[in-house]
Write a protein that binds this DNA or RNA. Structure first.
Lengths: 337, 337
DNA sequence: CTGTTAGCGCTTTCAG
DNA sequence: CTGAAAGCGCTAACAG
């Protein structure tokens, strides 16, 4: 910076003012400084600035190892929004969502002086692990909301599941079976809940749900278990990957979709429209979720930054994005109707 | 830090020594300091440390918006490896891989004082955009190698494609058609090249390849174009998503897989085994790619850090990971054999 | 409108 | 083995 000042024939300070877009610099002076900056390809030292302003301009994201489509999209949405708001983003991706890993990730991020943290993972245990840091650093969840604990942006999984189930019942199915996600995931619980609610609202029998783990394999295995139950005519899967596995299993055991069995997924991954048959599913806009969640986080950061005190968590700060049912060929009337 | 020193009854300095695991601290003293650190939940100020050591402990990753499976896995591998090596990772994800976006991303990362950059994107134009920064900051490519320009870790796409094509020829197919990736992607070029090489090595006719863009939709559209060409008995797709679309198109136009047409993909996404039929494909280990690439980057960073001079790019620093052909039900003998 | 002065919290260097 | 002094590059507060 001293070099730039010397080259432009001004002080230390004026350079700083120009670089930070402060007023009170004559246009001509500003121009001279800018020219010197370009000439020298000068880059301000982020550490020095951070030291004195006490702001890192960095937000942390906790993600996890995943073959899932959603998290990658949410991360992208978060990054876009963060850049737009003038923040860098630093990631911590977990292999396992156990309490210890989550805590280590938060510690790592805090050591790096992030000003806020967005958490994409959404197991109930993950959220619990976050508890000790609440108030120490602004945090939001993205993808699923943890009611009453942390602010965040999530899709209304309940509503999405209900729409899927109602669609199947409207087609004439007597009831709908469910391939659920892992029991400790917020999304999985909400979708199972929505499925159950929709069934009960119409006084339909509620079959046992089949347990999956989000993977195609688990959907496939759940599908095979239906081999000896000819009464099944409609299946709502908690995500598209499992639906894909179910489709495969049904094909193997000789059940046609949708003639014999209807299948509905959740997510609307880009491949859903090109499965055989194209999959009816519930679309969620992951990018939007990421952007909304980050917006909330930035708000918290900027509200709590000046005071430097402990952050007040406003539980009402939750953005719920509505999902949308996408009709395709995998759902139809039950046999004989 | 002053607080910790006071509480432990030592100087400023000794606390620093303990925190940095320097020798010459009596165990008892060390213990006292550590106790004070815990007591106060003290976290060293990253900015202050960075300012004086001139090291940010941060590496940047340039990724891009993607529904693709690979990049997410590579990013995860990179993050794991970076953490293991003691670095934070900051991301810049692009919406478009144009020259301008790439340059902005590099600038952003450099402003943040990253010590090195790993680039996941792999269009030829992306690599070209990087050129101006070569030497200014250590960089590696991950996923595809840019021969002679930057070090990096990549899969041997040529060899993988050749294996796929040879497999189909060995089954008795007269030739193999190809659904290619976008023309300006290094991976797409290498896979097309491998396909061509394998065909020519056995003096087989080389049909025009069909252009895709990695998406299922583009595979589907390419598949439909085969409607009026009954001579096609084998198709090698440059990735699994396009293969999935091709599978759907063949189903629609009444061609059975593998009885009428064999299909082979590339990547081995987790869903590949659960498509109908399960997809024969070329597996690449994306996580390993990320780890290897990051290893290279760390090496560069640590070699060039002390000297503080311009980095010498060693073009030989390239890790090639071998892909593996995974046989499943989508490939078989041609009709009539 | 511009320059001067005083730290931010740490590590490094040099004394004890 | 431990402490004291110096300074990393920047911004904030105050003078001019």
């Amino acid at each position: 910076m001293a070099d730039v000042a010397a080259l432009a024939g001004v002080s230390h300070q004026t350079v700083s003012r120009v670089l930070n877009d402060r007023p009170n610099v004559r246009p001509a002076t500003r121009e001279r400084v800018l020219a010197a900056v370009r000439e020298l390809d000068y880059r301000p030292n982020a550490a020095a600035r951070m030291l004195v302003t006490r702001r890192s301009q960095t937000l942390g994201v906790i993600s996890f190892d995943s073959t899932l489509y959603g998290p990658a999209q949410m991360l992208h949405g978060i990054e876009q929004a963060a850049r737009g708001a003038g923040y860098f983003v630093s990631i911590a991706s977990l292999r396992h969502q156990d309490v210890r890993s989550v805590r280590e990730a938060v510690d790592r991020l805090r050591d790096q002086a992030v000003e806020g943290i967005a958490v994409i993972a959404s197991q109930t245990s993950t959220v619990a692990a976050l508890a000790r840091h609440i108030g120490a650093v602004p945090m939001v969840t993205v993808g699923a909301t943890a009611p009453g604990r942390l602010p965040g942006a999530g899709v209304d999984n309940n509503v999405g599941a209900e729409a899927a189930v109602r669609h199947l019942l409207d087609l004439g199915h007597a009831t709908v079976h469910h391939v659920a996600g892992p029991g400790d995931w917020l999304e999985a619980n909400a979708r199972e809940q929505g499925w159950r609610t929709a069934l009960e609202a119409r006084s339909r029998p509620v079959p046992d749900s089949l347990a999956g783990d989000w993977s195609s394999r688990s959907g496939y295995e759940a599908g095979l278990r239906l081999r000896h139950d000819p009464s099944v005519t409609a299946i709502f899967c908690a995500n598209d990957h499992m639906a894909l596995g179910v489709l495969r299993a049904l094909h193997e055991i000789g059940r046609r979709v949708p003639e014999d069995v209807s299948v509905v997924g959740f997510d609307d991954i880009p491949e859903a429209a090109f499965l055989s048959p194209p999959l009816t599913t519930v679309r969620q806009d992951f990018g939007e979720l990421g952007r909304r969640g980050l917006g909330l986080l930035v708000h918290h950061v900027e509200v709590s930054a000046p005071g430097r005190g402990r952050t007040t968590v406003d539980h009402r700060q939750t953005a719920i994005v509505a999902p949308e049912l996408v009709l395709r060929a995998s759902s139809g009337r039950p046999p004989g109707r």
